[in-house]
Each structure stands twice: as structure tokens, then as C-alpha cells.
């Protein structure tokens, strides 16, 4: 199979069918509410969702009211990918070959407590789409550090000097399982995310999409800047949009366009959010160097 460019969806041909009811419980400016709405459009009505505890549990509503029009199984924190496995097993037993099974978890539920089940499911080759919305901390419980919280970030469990350790590179860990499709996306580029889900739906086996998801209350910025800040993470080359399709890596969308272009300094991104206020100039300079080195590598393969 060859690597193909995702078909481009625009705001003009995005499906009109809304699968998320308006008036859900997401915070103002929530990055998740953008990608959930667009992501469900891409998944379509013939889908069963699996969701562990996360902000999404709250967004989806409190019993007996639900904000989603898709069937959804809420499962325990560590068991998302195993839950998806069970639904797939049932679908095979019932000879249902059409329904998409999509797991949708936060960064803690994916990269920390949920990693073992996700790794097991990837190794078994389960035919699901796993979407991780990465808002870079345990937001639903009140902004505690997670494995994907970047270095230096202030959270309620790294309250003064910020997180000492680096961000865990979850897409690379998942890609190491040799699954057919790993992609990153951003809430600032929902159409790119839409196209990646659409592509994932055409493939058999585990598909993993890691979505950078700005969180106004957890990151410390005004709710009107969600898209701007998500875009800045990409424009500075800090968070990159890419696909690894059948082991082949390529940058996509806004990140692809940065090749050979001058990127914005990462400092611009850091100064938009209060969570980075403990970062020193030296630390920012070090991170800038890492980004430059990473992009040097990208230019060489491009």
C-alpha cells in the first residue's frame, strides 16, 4: 500500500449532520468540544464509542440526559482499549462488519493509566480507531500533571517550579507497535482531523490519532484564544501534524507547509499561557534548540 494524501475536506463540504447536541457541559472555549463535534461527523452514525472517565464524560452529560447521538459505553479509567476490544468481539460474533468502534480518551486515560490496555489492543491488531485528546494534564480532576504534560508546566501537582520531566511521546510509542495508522492532529485544525478520521475508517486494524487540545482553564488563557493557541503550537514547530501510514512518516497540513519556511519562535507560544510562567529564558532557549534540531531532521527527509 502506498502513502496517500488525505482528501481535503472544507467547511463547505463538511457533513451537516450534527451528532453532538448544543448546550453540552463543556467549558467555554473547550478544545475538546471542537474536535468532538467534528470528529463525530467524520465517524458517522454507524459508530459505537468507548469513553473512560475524562472531561468527555462530563461533556456527554449527566444521566438521564446525553449530549451525543451515538451509542456510547462508559468504561473504567484503565480499560478503554479493552472495552473497544470487547465491542469488536461482539460485533464479530454478530457478523456486523460495518460498525466503526471508536475509543475516545484523554491524555491520562491514554498515556498513563490506559497505556497497558492500549498497547495490548494494538499488539492484537484490534480494528478500532483510538482518539486521544491531549490537553496535557488531568483537566477533569483539576489540572494535575500527566505523562504528556510538557516540561516546565505549572499544574496543581507541580505548583511552583513546574514539571521537571519531558512530555511522553505517545504517538511514537503507539507507532512502535507497527499498526497501520498513527496520526497527530490539533483542535486548531479540525478539518485536518476530520480527514484523518475519514482515512482511518478505510483501514483495517488499530488506528491511533493524537489530538493536541488547548484547554483555557487548565492552560491559563482566555477562552476566545483556543484556536489561536492551538495554531501557535503548530506554527512554532512545537506540536507537529503528521501521519505514519504503514510505517511511513509524513508531515501534513499546516506542519507540511512549514518545511523550508521560517517558524515562529516558541517563546511566543509560551508567553500566551500562564502555565508556562515558571519557564526560564534558558529553558525556553533549550526547547527552541530541540525544536530546531527536530525540524532540521524533517527538512533532510523532505
Amino acid at each position: 500500500m502506498t502513502t496517500t494524501s488525505a482528501a481535503k475536506t472544507t467547511i463547505l463540504n463538511l457533513p451537516e449532520d450534527e451528532l453532538v447536541h448544543p448546550g453540552n457541559r463543556a467549558c467555554a472555549g473547550c478544545g475538546l468540544s471542537i474536535i468532538y463535534r467534528i470528529g463525530l461527523k467524520a465517524l458517522g452514525r454507524d459508530t459505537i464509542l468507548v469513553v473512560p472517565p475524562s472531561c468527555l464524560t462530563v461533556l456527554q452529560g449527566l444521566y438521564p440526559i446525553a449530549a451525543t447521538q451515538l451509542p456510547c459505553l462508559n468504561v473504567t479509567f484503565a480499560s478503554t482499549a479493552a472495552g473497544a476490544t470487547g465491542i469488536l468481539g461482539a460485533m464479530r460474533a454478530k457478523k456486523n462488519e460495518t460498525t466503526t468502534v471508536a475509543a475516545w480518551a484523554g491524555d491520562g486515560g491514554t498515556s498513563d493509566i490506559g497505556l497497558q490496555a492500549l498497547s495490548g489492543a494494538c499488539e492484537r491488531g484490534e480494528n478500532f480507531i483510538f482518539i486521544c485528546y491531549d490537553n496535557e494534564a488531568y483537566m477533569n480532576t483539576g489540572v494535575q500533571r500527566s505523562g504528556t504534560t510538557p516540561q516546565g508546566v505549572i499544574t496543581t501537582t507541580t505548583p511552583f517550579s513546574g514539571k521537571a520531566q519531558r512530555k511522553k511521546d505517545v504517538p511514537s510509542i503507539i507507532a512502535a507497535h507497527g499498526i497501520p495508522y498513527v496520526a497527530t492532529a490539533s483542535a486548531a485544525y479540525p478539518l485536518d482531523f476530520f480527514d484523518k478520521i475519514t482515512k482511518a475508517k478505510t483501514m483495517k486494524g488499530p488506528k491511533y490519532i493524537h489530538v493536541h487540545t488547548p484547554c483555557p482553564s487548565g492552560w491559563g488563557f482566555h477562552s476566545r484564544f483556543t484556536v489561536k493557541i492551538g495554531a501557535l503550537a503548530v506554527e512554532t514547530g512545537l506540536f507537529d501534524l503528521y501521519e505514519i501510514e504503514n510505517q511511513k512518516f509524513r508531515l501534513t497540513g499546516a506542519s507540511e507547509k512549514l518545511i523550508g519556511k521560517k517558524r515562529k519562535p516558541v517563546k511566543e507560544y509560551f508567553k500566551t499561557q500562564s502555565r508556562f510562567k515558571a519557564l526560564t529564558d534558558d529553558q525556553m532557549a533549550d526547547i527552541q534548540k530541540e525544536i530546531d534540531a527536530k525540524w532540521e531532521g524533517y527538512q533532510q527527509v523532505a
Binding site: G86, I87, A90
Partner: peptide
């Protein structure tokens, strides 16, 4: 977890 989901899906 697999049994929970499989049973929830009617098997």
C-alpha cells in the same frame, strides 16, 4: 473489560 463491553453489546 472485554466481557463488560461484549455483554453490553449483547453477546
Amino acid at each position: 473489560a472485554v466481557c463488560i463491553a461484549a455483554s453490553s453489546a449483547g453477546t
